[in-house]
Amino acid sequence: MSLATPADIGPTEFLAARARWRPVEIVFWLAAITPYFIAADYLQLAGQILITGLFALSLDLILGYAGIVSLGHAAFFGLGAYATGIASKHGWGEPLTGLLIGGLVAGVVGFGASFIVARFRGLALIMITLGLDQIVAEAANSMGWLTGGADGLQGVKTWPILGLFRFDLYGVTAYWYALIVTFLFFLLVRRMVNSPFGLSLQGIRENSTRMLAIGARNHAHVRTVFTIAAFIAGVAGALLTETTETVSLETLSFQRSADVLVMLILGGVGQLYGGLVGALIYMVARDQFSDINPQYWYFWIGLLLVAVVVFLPNGIVGGVKKLGGLLGRRGT
């Protein structure tokens, strides 16, 4: 755990060490498979948590690394969900290409939006992303012939994965499927944030004016990351469609945009694991609290949110890291 001093480690080795897998990360992903063995009744929930976690991860990529605040990220989640659902309803229920369809539709719209997004920051950006989500949600609502409108999209049928693994009532296949897809995209995002591109994103987050003064291509970087984040959000939406075989307008709602932001802030913005941990805490809390009192469970989420923001500026993951750092220092 001891961090070497400049005297005894070269600069390249120092940066390589920062990107290396930590034991706690391996523990985290091992823990992610335990529900299969110890909580079979909760596999449905576990699958949903993973999908939401992937969605939150895509938000972290733009918010936590590039500093792009979005209150409309559900637009891409919902676009992916509907694209895959509509393809399935019309006879193409193959799940892997289904993910690709969802991701591509969301990514193309994200790419278009990125030209506007790249030019704004702060409050203006919040309003633009919010407005974008409203536009997409209203379009889906009014195009009932395509989306099923307020009744939701019916008739979605997902084929077995690779022709082998049928989606079952208990959510076993859905859970493994969501876990593997989420893990693969996590690997991609992890690599991205540790790449030269990821470093430039952090530069934009930290000081975009200074980035221009060193000749950086801020707009191009923002367009790239926003498109990729939209693609991943679309894949998360597609996963939800394939595993639940239905799509509702809720996937596009402002509520979903706000919820994913709350989860990410709870877990920790710019911490890579913040979205996954936030989704876990939020959804388990919702599951448990709504058992106790179905009407007022959001009270506890609100309390938790305030407490985390006040006491843990880098969220729960940031707090755990800090604690680990303190313990590690004492140990050496």
Partner: peptide, 10 residues
């Protein structure tokens, strides 16, 4: 090299 998002910085 800042467009490269698939290689590690190191």
């Amino acid at each position: 090299e800042s467009r490269d998002f698939l290689s590690r910085l190191a």
